[in-house]
């Protein structure tokens, strides 16, 4: 049964990978926009900004004004990546030392809690409900279940007891569902996120919007003020 489930996870993962690759290829089959206007700034600086300071709450108003959602989102995504790595380790039957298991346990739990909180927000906030379609709820629930099962799996004693605990089978089943759903619904954004950030960086970087961000007169003062505003927002 265990081997069958492991095989299922691998097949689902490959399905996901192939489907997403096809989706990316289809997306990239569209013509690339040619940029003829002479740049005013440095697109590389724009990309650095997009992946660095441009995601920080003291720089980004939408993050600063919605700190719980922002922090929840960070934990959610860290939890997902950690749980995916953990899934790989479980499939390869590698025994992790307790010192490594503990952070995995904490982060998968934190991710699950964050995911459930974001789900609750989507359910109970009228604005979020109005914005959402069934896919939004489904994607969240599928990933939340995977995170919860990853967390529960970390509680199992090592080496894995015999017969195979039901948690392990459920973890694999949830992974199969998640991988199969990934190219069909919004989880696919994981494949596009980084490219969008690059496009964001190129757009503003070429136009010289962020290159002045640090060096304009009073810019550092503005940054410090923003950081203080951010700290103030942390205080209830």
């Amino acid at each position: 049964m265990l081997t069958f489930m492991k095989f299922g996870v691998i097949i689902a993962f490959l399905f996901s990978l192939v489907s997403l690759s096809y989706l990316v290829l289809k997306t990239f089959s569209h013509e690339k926009k040619k940029l003829n206007a002479e740049p005013r700034g440095d697109w590389k600086k724009g990309i650095i900004y997009a992946f660095g300071k441009g995601m920080m709450p003291w720089e980004k108003e939408s993050a600063r004004n919605h700190l719980p959602t922002y922090i929840g989102g960070i934990f959610y995504h860290i939890g997902i990546f950690i749980s995916l790595l953990y899934l790989l380790i479980v499939i390869l039957a590698i025994q992790l030392p307790a010192a490594v298991i503990l952070p995995v346990r904490v982060l998968s739990l934190a991710g699950a809690i964050a995911g459930l909180a974001l789900l609750a927000k989507r359910i109970f906030s009228p604005v979020m409900r109005a914005l959402s379609c069934p896919d939004d709820f489904a994607a969240n629930i599928i990933v939340d279940i995977f995170l919860i099962l990853s967390f529960l799996h970390t509680l199992l004693p090592a080496p894995s007891p015999v017969p195979v605990p039901v948690v392990t089978l459920f973890l694999f089943a949830s992974a199969v569902i998640m991988f199969l759903y990934m190219p069909l619904g919004k989880i696919r954004h994981c494949f596009f996120f980084f490219y969008v950030r690059i496009l964001f960086g190129i757009f503003y970087g070429r136009r010289g919007v962020f290159q002045n961000n640090f060096c304009h007169q009073g810019g550092k003062v503005f940054l410090i003020i923003n950081f203080l505003v951010f700290l103030r927002a942390l205080v209830p």
Binding site: T27, E31, K32, K33, L131, F192, L199
Partner: peptide, 13 residues
Amino acid sequence: NREFAVYFNSCVH
């Protein structure tokens, strides 16, 4: 174009 197609697949609501 390619850029727009990427955006269309990226909004998480």
